[in-house]
Amino acid sequence: MTLSTDPAVDPLARELLQSVVDVARAIFGAEAGSVCLLDEAAGELVFQAVSGRGEESLVGRRFPAGSGIAGWVAASGEPMVVDDLGANRTFDRAFAESTAYVPNALMAAPLTHGSKVLGVLEVLDPAPQARASLPELDLLALFARQAAAALRVIAERAPAPAAVPDRAAALDLLADLEELLRRQP
């Protein structure tokens, strides 16, 4: 399954993702919400939809997928909830570079399809009563599962891939072959 990380690709996809982040923000009484999709070839996460702060400026913006909280969530496939980030200057700097908005609390959950991580749903500055406890972590993960299902629907109705395989797919195939040969001498 391949999802385009070009936000302009599909108007219905845009509407669906916008709805996901709007509802996520409403559920947790949050200042902002966002969905980023993973561009595996580039090793980047790309903002696809944003609700609240940053809504106008962030869509389409990319940041490295190998680090930070969103990076950990994308790599591990696990949700994460963090609070009291305000005093953390390192976090401020790294996060501000990608979003221009520094939250005090952040909830993030992976959008998965089977074992594959498609992207990350983030909720910034949820209402204080909606933070850092296990039921909230469960709720976030449940909602991310629904969002991931929506993403799969979008991917399935996307046009068939071009006949010429793209470079990233070819490199993936080569890497898989190499691993196979290495494991079975």
Partner: peptide, 21 residues
């Protein structure tokens, strides 16, 4: 204990977090 745990984080700071981790 894995709910609302105070933990060290980057930059010498501490935060609160939750999870089996």
């Amino acid at each position: 204990p894995g709910q609302n745990v105070r933990v060290p984080w980057l930059g010498g700071a501490t935060i609160r977090t939750t999870g089996n981790s």
